[in-house]
């Protein structure tokens, strides 16, 4: 079972875990990653107030689905869930949820890492930082994210 969603509203992680756990009695482990808006204070700059996430409607959903299908092809999964939010997300708000269910822990944990690394570099979302003084700027892509995704290449 693959479930992907691109949405403005919050997700219910407990309900998503329950739904994925329920795909079958064979599920023995479930990996979970939740990305949050963290305080990202820089010297001399006002504190971060929120991230504003923009996406490419249509392509964002299809790329999340593609990355989820890749995870299912690569790891022995019984299902996975990928939910990515957009819009203005204040400090502490959840941004992304990744769940992967398998018979055993290793595949579930590895697939969770694979999914989050790939969606950071392969899904069309953009973050803009909003500071408490009202100033804002677009987040630059990080080479470290490309490296994290590249380690899954065969």
């Amino acid at each position: 079972m693959i479930r992907v969603s691109v949405q403005a509203e919050p997700f219910d992680a407990a309900a998503e875990i329950a739904a994925l756990s329920g795909v079958g009695a064979a599920v023995g482990g479930l990996g979970c990653f939740i990305g949050l808006v963290r305080a990202d204070d820089r010297p001399g700059e006002p504190p971060l107030a929120a991230l504003v996430l923009e996406h490419y409607p249509g392509m964002s959903e299809s790329m999340l689905r593609e990355v989820a299908e890749q995870a299912c092809a690569r790891f022995p999964l019984l299902g996975c869930t990928v939910i990515h939010r957009f819009g203005r997300l204040p400090l502490g708000e959840p941004i992304v949820l990744v769940l992967a269910a398998s018979r055993h822990r290793q595949a579930a944990l590895d697939a969770t890492g694979f999914l989050i690394d790939w969606l950071k570099t392969g899904a069309p979302f953009w973050k803009r930082e909003e500071r408490t003084d009202g100033s804002s700027r677009w987040v630059e892509a990080r080479p470290a994210d490309d490296h994290a995704a590249a380690r899954w290449k065969d």
Binding site: I95, W126, A141
Partner: peptide, 10 residues
Amino acid sequence: VALFPPVTGG
């Protein structure tokens, strides 16, 4: 055809 900066989601 879409033009955009390198993505920064996740």
